[in-house]
Write a protein that binds this DNA or RNA. Structure first.
Length: 194
DNA sequence: TCTACGATCTTT
DNA sequence: AAGATCGTAGAT
């Protein structure tokens, strides 16, 4: 399976977001196929972390595309983002994925918790990949560590508004910047997508 | 230092 | 409908 080159990320964040569906993320023995993402457009997008300016936490988002941006949410969830463009402050949040390799290990990391859902939702995805904020700023286009691979494309996408951004401006809340694989069961809030 | 709160998930 | 849980950001 081939690594995506860095210039693959040097495009508009929405274009990259759509193209990310079906790609594989690999870390160690676990490989996942991305099924749901959200685009965060940059400082002018009131839902994006870069809209509050440059801070130590969001530093990777201001850099070149092809790097991760991992942050801690609600004190317990490590959220994986993929930086796009070049110094634009834009990134794509990876919300859900389906297991490709290492499903047993993913289950173990979930601590044998009951429930049918294995890794839909950004918090659970971070747990499946055993991420922490130490992984923020990691290059995804070089072998080893955290990698983004070619994967297998989706046949059709479904699209809708982003989740959990009630604090943003109405126009940004309304913006249809969430993308998912129409044929996958590994998607959150499916009723809001079409 | 201190305070408020979040791109969530689970249980009630 | 609310609690868990803590790093970050902005205020002091």
């Amino acid at each position: 399976m081939t690594l995506l080159p860095q210039d693959w990320y040097f495009r508009d964040v929405v274009e990259v977001a759509r193209d990310l569906i079906g790609r594989h993320v690999r870390r160690g023995r676990v490989t996942l196929r991305i099924t749901e993402v959200e685009a965060y457009r940059g400082p002018t997008d009131s839902a994006a972390h870069t809209s509050m300016g440059r801070t130590p936490r969001n530093e990777p988002m201001w850099g070149d595309g092809g790097h991760s941006y991992v942050y801690l949410c609600y004190g317990l969830h490590n959220m994986l983002n993929i930086v796009t463009g070049r110094g634009e402050g834009a990134a794509v949040l990876i919300r859900s994925a389906e297991p490709v390799v290492g499903e047993a290990l993913v289950r173990a990391r979930r601590g044998g918790k009951s429930g049918t859902v294995l890794l839909t939702g950004p918090g659970k995805l971070g747990q499946a990949l055993d991420l922490s904020t130490k992984w923020s700023g990691h290059p995804l286009f070089t072998p080893g560590g955290l990698e983004l691979l070619e994967g297998t494309p989706a046949r059709r996408l479904i699209i809708g508004p982003r989740i959990g951004i009630d604090y943003a401006r109405p126009k940004d809340i309304r913006a249809r910047l969430r993308f998912a694989d129409a044929d996958s069961d590994w998607v959150t809030h499916r009723s809001k997508l079409r």
